[in-house]
Design a protein around this nucleic acid. Structure first.
Lengths: 141, 141
DNA sequence: GTAATTGCAAACCGTTTGCACCCGA
DNA sequence: TCGGGTGCAAACGGTTTGCAATTAC
């Protein structure tokens, strides 16, 4: 249950937190502005400050994780430690596809070992054109 | 020659552009603020606006590439299309180590093909603790 | 000479924060 | 009740931009 996710972390259950969590169930990857739009459409008016505070709190409590797909805006998605994945991002339509490749993960560990690095985290973002956008602009225009 | 790099792109050669290019020869990865500091130390006072404009122009002309190691600040490095590489970033001391792994590149292409994606670009950032910082904080503190 | 470059200050945009009020447990 | 949550507006930090003066070619 969504309310459990929030309360299990010792956070107070509020209408806004629930609404934000529900937004992530419907749309995997969201930035603060998109969340605002979604909540507004549902008649849920929330100040930007609250959205940022809820996002920060959710991130600190491991409910969501932050990504930097866009260079100037934070994008979040629900955390799922048991299902790590990386992302393909379409630079035309901003579609995001998740993938997981075990071999790449292993190679990353080897690279870290070679460089005496202890990996804490990683981001692998593949930017490109998705099949839909290729159809729309077959010559790459 | 540094001046050639600038003029070959049809850009006007100026003292500031040269100084910024030289900064990149000494320090591989730089953000706007660091460039400002470096130039100031050399007695080269440059306005922030100019730095950003030069960076934008260099990037548009393929002289440098932008990275998003930090979530809230753009980091640039000299472009070198013939020597693609990815990065290990130490979250303690911000050290950046470059690496290249052919197998990972191949796997990425396979993933793209599977998803009917045409990759244009990618960022693989491995965040962790470098060996020096592990020594300083052996228990991870 | 002329278009590109620069400095300054103001604008911008995403995000954060101080403060007073509100509300969930 | 009371400490966390919220809205508002102001602040913040990195970046961009309008404009007038300067400079490379």
């Amino acid at each position: 249950m969504n309310s459990d996710i929030i309360q299990n972390k010792g956070l107070k259950l509020t209408k806004h937190k629930l609404a934000i969590l529900e937004a992530f169930k419907l749309h995997k990857h969201l930035d603060a502005h998109q969340i605002n739009t979604i909540l507004n459409k549902k008649g849920n008016v929330v100040s930007a400050a609250t959205i940022y505070r809820v996002l920060a709190s959710f991130e600190a409590n491991g409910i969501i994780v932050r990504h930097n797909f866009k260079e100037d805006q934070a994008v979040y998605e629900l955390a799922d430690p048991s299902h790590h994945h990386d992302h393909l991002i379409c630079t035309k339509c901003n579609k995001v596809i998740e993938f997981y490749n075990c071999q790449i993960e292993i190679l990353q560990e080897e690279i870290a070992k070679k460089n005496k690095f202890e990996i804490i985290n990683h981001h692998l973002n593949l930017y490109g054109i998705c099949s839909d956008c290729k159809k729309t602009h077959p010559a790459g225009l």
